[in-house]
Design a protein around this nucleic acid. Structure first.
Ligand code: MN
Ligand code: MN
Ligand code: ZN
Ligand code: ZN
Lengths: 131, 131
DNA sequence: CGATTAGATGAAAATGATTATCAGTACCGT
DNA sequence: ACGGTACTGATAATCATTTTCATCTAATCG
């Protein structure tokens, strides 16, 4: 690689400051305010490119907000896991893979005539701070 | 009520012709081709308004496609259920609520300090026709 | 009946997120 | 210095969805 992306670190630092899923514009707002980049904050284009690349590499988790925005978050672990996130503030708790879920998926795979069955399982709630 | 929506029936008929989730533009394309509306097909605006209203009323299921489009489908049953849909053609099979999932959600609710925990569980695969 | 009026509709514009383009720049190995 | 490659930022393009607004429709009232 000829050149290492300049803002990867800064973007990750912003994401690491909270456990919430963040949008590209939120990330930029944080970088703007924190003056953490020596040469000034990156462009919005660069942020879009950075998070897109990182989520392909598995460094970031991605979700689609109900409003249709894509949100990003540092992925805590490379193994399968789920997310329980607060509908009010967006705070996220990672939930380890549960055997029962895998069993249910397997059962459905057997009963149906679909192949290559995959699944998503996500949880929402209201976090203690928001109660 | 002074005036009743003119295209509700036509939109539902299109959705009932397949078990796939459909986008607004797909619905319009079908209405265009089928010439099923006496006075001509509705505008795209009307379709957006119609599916939005119907999904609020619980008549339609909604999902966000990975590409960020909102897709709609006649909801077969008012009780909780899941969807197994084909990644290739979009064909959908409805999966009845599974007790194990509810149990897992309940366990997570107890272990975490989140309140009002809800969940989504969706399945994708490749349908027999697409294999 | 004719006027009133709340909804419904369609065309067009506005919005908003994301992506594509493209020119300029920094870095690297030669 | 040179050539190649990747990164960046500004801008324009895309695309789905929403908003706006003028017009139409049909039920209701006098
Ligand atoms: Mn994660
Ligand atoms: Mn359904
Ligand atoms: Zn919260
Ligand atoms: Zn299929």
């Amino acid at each position: 690689m000829v050149n290492t992306p300049k803002y990867d670190e800064a973007v990750l630092q912003v994401l690491d400051r909270s456990s919430r899923f963040r949008s590209c514009r939120e990330i930029l707002r944080d970088l703007d305010r924190s003056h953490s980049c020596a040469t000034g904050p990156p462009s919005l284009s660069t942020i879009y490119r950075t998070v897109h690349r990182m989520s392909q590499e598995g460094v970031l988790d991605t979700i689609q907000s109900p409003e249709g925005e894509r949100l990003y978050r540092r992925c805590g672990t490379p193994v399968r896991h789920y997310h329980l996130f607060c509908r009010v503030c967006g705070e996220v708790e990672e939930i380890a893979q549960v055997a029962e879920i895998a069993a249910v998926v397997e059962k459905i795979r057997c009963l149906s005539d679909f192949a290559q069955v995959d699944h998503t399982f996500e949880l929402t709630g209201v976090c203690p701070r928001c109660l």
